Amino acid sequence: MAYAASQGASIAAWYLVVPLNATKENPVAWFYTLTGDSDYPCGWMGLAQLNGLAAKYQNVTVGVDVHAFRAGMLADRSGLPTAP
């Protein structure tokens, strides 16, 4: 928030959008722990929501093909950043 304020911006809401669903193997509790004390709404938008939006707004061109991205991500992790 401090950076946004220093740039003259304010944050109305923040959503983490990822092509993965929250599951037992992919928990998102860390996200809500991280954003729990935010002054603005925060949410997780996963693959199911992205699929729903793609079905609802079929005339909108999406910059990233979620299915191709996910398939590539699962097949080849060499390009993904690693923790320091």
Results as ranks from 00 to 15, higher is better:
Asn26Ala: 06
Val17Leu: 11
Pro41Leu: 13
Pro41Glu: 13
Trp44Gln: 01
Ala2Glu: 15
Tyr57Lys: 10
Asn21Glu: 13
Trp44Lys: 01
Val62Glu: 06
Ser38Ile: 00
Gln7Arg: 14
Asp37Val: 08
Ala4Glu: 08
Met73His: 01
Tyr15Lys: 11
Gly8Asp: 05
Ala9Arg: 09
Ala22Ser: 14
Gln49Val: 07
Ser78Lys: 09
Trp14Gly: 13
Pro84Lys: 07
Tyr3Leu: 15
Val18Leu: 11
Gly36Leu: 05
Phe69Cys: 05
Tyr32Asn: 03
Gly52His: 02
Asn59Pro: 00
Gln7His: 01
Asp65Cys: 06
Phe69His: 04
Gln7Leu: 10
Leu34Ser: 05
Phe69Val: 00
Asp76His: 10
Val60Cys: 09
Ala2Met: 13
Tyr32Phe: 14
Tyr32Ser: 12
Thr61Tyr: 02
Trp14Thr: 15
Gly8Arg: 06
Thr23Asn: 06
Thr23Asp: 08
Ala12Asn: 15
Thr33Gln: 11
Thr82Phe: 06
Gly43Thr: 09
Met45Tyr: 00
Pro41Asp: 09
Ala5Trp: 11
Leu53Pro: 05
Met73Glu: 03
Asp39Leu: 12
Thr35Pro: 03
Gln49Asn: 01
Ala68Met: 12
Ser6Tyr: 08
Val18Asn: 05
Val28Met: 14
Cys42Arg: 10
Gly72Tyr: 00
Trp44Leu: 01
Lys24Asn: 04
Ala68Thr: 15
Tyr40Met: 09
Arg70Lys: 11
Leu80Met: 12
Ala2Phe: 10
Val64Gln: 03
Arg70Thr: 02
Ala9Asn: 02
Tyr32Gly: 07
Val17Tyr: 06
Val64Arg: 09
Phe69Asn: 03
Thr23Cys: 07
Phe31Gln: 03
Met73Thr: 04
Gly52Cys: 05
Ala68Ser: 14
Gly72Phe: 00
Ala48Ser: 12
Val17Asn: 12
Tyr57Trp: 15
Ser78Tyr: 02
Asp65Tyr: 02
Leu53Ser: 01
Glu25Gly: 08
Pro19Arg: 07
Ala29Glu: 13
Pro27Trp: 13
Leu50Glu: 06
Tyr15Leu: 15
Thr33Gly: 00
Met1Phe: 03
Lys24Ala: 07
Ala48Thr: 05
Ala71Val: 02
Leu16Glu: 08
Ala55Val: 08
Thr82His: 10
Gly8Tyr: 02
Gln49Gly: 04
Ser38Asp: 07
Asn59Ala: 14
Leu47Lys: 06
Trp30Asn: 05
Pro81Gln: 11
Pro19Gly: 08
Tyr57Asn: 12
Val18Met: 10
Gln58Asp: 13
Pro41Trp: 06
Asn51Ser: 06
Met73Asn: 01
Gln49Ser: 03
Met45Ser: 00
His67Asp: 15
Thr23Phe: 04
Gly63Lys: 08
Ser6Gly: 14
His67Thr: 14
Gln49Ala: 10
Trp44Met: 00
Ala2Pro: 15
Ala22Thr: 10
Leu47Ser: 00
Pro84Gly: 11
Trp14Met: 15
Ala22Pro: 03
Asp76Lys: 04
Val66Arg: 13
Ser78Val: 07
Thr35Asn: 02
Ser6Arg: 14
Thr82Lys: 15
Ser10Gly: 08
Pro19Ser: 09
Gly63Pro: 11
Ala55Ile: 03
Gly52Arg: 05
Ala71Ile: 00
Pro41His: 10
Leu74Glu: 12
Ala9His: 12
Ser38Arg: 07
Asn59Glu: 12
Met1Glu: 14
Asn26Val: 11
Gly46Thr: 00
Ser10Val: 06
Asp37Glu: 10
Ser6Cys: 09
